[in-house]
Amino acid sequence: MGQPHDLGNIIDAHPFFDGIDAELRTLLVGCAANERFEPGEFLLREGKAADKFFLIRGGTVAVEVDVPGKKPIILETMGEGEVLGWSWMVAPFMATFDARATVAVRALSFDGKCLRKKMAADPALGYAVMSRFVPVMAHRLQQTRMQLLDLYGVDAEGGKKKKKGKGD
């Protein structure tokens, strides 16, 4: 685990907490830890306690679903500058997917229980955290909808005669 001032600098350097008030940042530092994951190591496991979220500082994480007897299905990959995990905010605080490091990953982790407690006690912190998570959640929802559209499938592209090699 890094020193508090180091963690503060890391928080400052990560786009997720851009513009956060210094006082609130100090509260965040108290719940933060610097972590490293080797390739193949899991940051979150489906059905297990979602007791953390992560600001990814380097490397790539695959969010995936385990399929018995087969390779897992990867839903999304995330990298530097992105935030992983919001189940720590939603009861019963269980991870809904696996998150696996596909290469070595450096991340700042935040203890969900610690942060929930501080957010409940300090609405300004709660607002600062929530107002950063909601756009991420909205973006993920939009991304998921776009994936559901299956844009590159024949059905999605069909219907009219096309040019560019996609049509009649």
Binding site: K71, I73, T77, G79, M146, D150
Partner: peptide, 23 residues
Amino acid sequence: VTVDRATGKWGGNVGVVTNLVAK
């Protein structure tokens, strides 16, 4: 390059192409 869906064999990006623009 990104793909909309993949299995664990794929080591590249998974997600919509707009994510690449956002980066």
